[in-house]
Simulated assay, not measured.
Amino acid sequence: MKYISPIQLNEIIESDTPTMIVNVLPHHAYMRHHIPNSTNYDVNDPKFISNIEASCPAKETAIILYGIDNTLMRPKMAVHRLEKLGYKNCLVLKGGLEEWESEGYVTITN
């Protein structure tokens, strides 16, 4: 499993590199706060795979997955499922939203 730090993710966001950033938490958690430019596909939703495939058909595209904290259970589950489908560039945000915010990066609240 490959990991990415909040600093590295911010550099990717600022560089406009083709990347998909996915919050794998339930929708209500995503609505509370999330990383700018991220999409919400709950890894426990039966449509998780079909949503990813529809949004990101190119299996070489970097997909960065994140949850709430450093337990990383949901993002790791998502990586496992995506790699079984042939996605080659899945990364997990170390520390999730908690570390992103502790590094001083903004989140979007709805």
Rank of each mutant, 00 (worst) to 15 (best):
K59H: 12
K59V: 05
K59S: 05
E60Q: 15
T61L: 11
T61N: 06
I63M: 07
I63L: 13
I64D: 09
I64R: 06
L65C: 13
L65P: 03
Y66W: 08
Y66K: 10
G67C: 15
I68F: 10
N70H: 14
T71K: 12
L72D: 11
L72I: 14
L72R: 14
M73N: 13
M73C: 09
M73Q: 15
M73V: 15
M73H: 10
R74Y: 06
P75E: 10
P75Q: 03
P75A: 07
K76D: 05
M77A: 08
M77N: 11
A78N: 11
H80A: 12
H80F: 14
R81I: 03
R81N: 00
R81Y: 02
L82Q: 04
K84H: 14
L85P: 09
L85K: 15
G86I: 07
Y87S: 00
K88I: 04
K88R: 10
K88F: 04
K88Y: 03
K88H: 11
N89K: 04
N89V: 05
N89S: 11
C90E: 03
V92E: 03
V92T: 13
V92A: 03
L93P: 06
L93D: 11
K94L: 04
G95Q: 00
G96P: 12
G96C: 08
L97T: 10
L97P: 02
E98S: 10
W100H: 01
W100R: 03
W100K: 06
S102V: 01
S102A: 00
E103V: 05
E103H: 13
E103C: 13
G104N: 01
G104M: 02
Y105I: 07
Y105Q: 12
Y105W: 11
V106K: 14
V106T: 12
T107S: 15
T107C: 09
T107N: 08
